[in-house]
Each structure stands twice: as C-alpha cells, then as structure tokens.
Amino acid sequence: MSNAAKKINLNLKVWRQKNAEDKGYFDVYKAEGIDQDASFLEMLDVVNEGLSKQGKDPIAFDHDCREGICGMCGAVVNGHAHGPKAKTTLCQLHMRTFSNGQTLVIEPFRSRALPVQKDLIVDRSAFDRVIASGGFISVRTGSVQDANNIPVEKKSADLAFDAASCIGCAACVAACPNASAMLFVSAKVSHLALLPQGQPERSRRVLGMVEQMDTEGFGNCSNEYQCEAACPKGISVQNIARMNRDYAHARFTSED
C-alpha cells in the first residue's frame, strides 16, 4: 500500500511436471508489469491468467488461505523455501522483495517422502500419517474435566504454543540438506510433551511418530538448522533437541 506501487518485470524459470510419473522439466516465462504490492502467488495468478489466454496449461500450485496460516502453499524460489524473506510463507511474500529484471527459479519442495503430483504441488500425506501415529491426546469427546482443573505453567503453555504454531507446510523438509522432517515432527511432539495433558502418552507418542517419520523415507537430521531458518513460523530447533531426549528416554524406559 506504499503510495506509488512500482511495476516490475521478472523472468521465471518454473518446474513443470504433468503428474507424479512424468519426469518434469523447467520452462521459462516472462512476468510483466507485476505490481510490487502483489503477493508472490498473485504474481503467479497473473502469469497463469496470461498462460490461459494463450491456451497454455497454467502452472499448478497449492494455495488456500493466502494469509500464511493454512500451510498449503510453498515452493523453493532461488534456493529458498518460501522465498528469500525470513518467517514468511510464499503467499505472504510480497513482490517488493524482488527487483526489476530479476530471474526467479521456482521449484517444488523436493523430498522423496513428498512426491510431486503436478508442477509445484507435492503430496504431504506423509505428515498426516506421522500425526496418526501418535500426534494426539486420546480423550473421548465429553469425557473430560473442567478446563481450569488443569493448571499449566505459563512458560510451558507459551512454549507449547510456539511449537503448536507449526503450519505443516513442509518448508523444513524442503530446506534441509538431508530432506529431514525432524523440525515438523519435533514441533508436534513438543507441543504435547510440554503440557500436562500430554504426559500419559508421552513415550508412546514420540516412539510412534519417530518410527513413522523414518518409515516415510525422510532424511536424518545433521544439526544444520536450515529448517529453523526456513520455517515461516520460526519454530525453534530446541524442539528437535527435546524430541531427541524424549526419544532416547522413551526407548530405554518404556515397554513399547
């Protein structure tokens, strides 16, 4: 909303892939007259509108809320998951970040566990399966006590919230040199491990989720912290440390 929004032209090199079986290739497009107040996805909208008018297949990309919370969007732009701006999802990345004439290489999040389905769209159902392996507290609807019967130390509640603010976008996997999902999984494990409500299933949860994470074929963490740098919600790698500790503890003390 800066008073005089500038228009810029960009060269795009975009990954095109028809479906999961297709090999895929890069195609080159011009994005012209892009308003710098537009978001990155709105820039892609403009390019797609142009492609449609030329009778070409528009670039497929995932997106939904466009306010940085649903976790649906994401691509790697010039080697940055979600683009070069820290703590920003692609939909919240505005074109004022880029300059006139710049070339943008746009690729899908790459991981064997998150296969490309079309163009920039990847299959993140691996995350759902990790959650189904223990990322919950087993309480039946209605069979619970009064909310204020469970006091939670404010510090723990805040840390749990910070972990829970993960939007499941998979940028951590995309940015990790090893395509590891440790930040995502550890954020989920930590969220519940930090709360008194999460204690009864603490061991079972971390063991189940880590096992599923490994089964999905994600890489291993080598403590490079690229995930934290790329995370649009700034989730801390302290969560990974917490999960490492919890995992070893659970493995050697629980009977699971």
Binding site: N78, F218, S222, Q226
Partner: peptide, 18 residues
C-alpha cells in the same frame, strides 16, 4: 540422506545460515 531428496534442486539450496 542422499536418497531422501529424490530429485535434486536445480538451484543450490541457499544456506547462508550454515
């Protein structure tokens, strides 16, 4: 780790924090 990426990125991953 080598297998986990699958298809490699064309542009090297940005890593100024590494």
């Amino acid at each position: 780790n080598r297998q986990a990426r699958g298809v490699q990125y064309s542009e090297p991953l940005h890593a100024n924090t590494r």
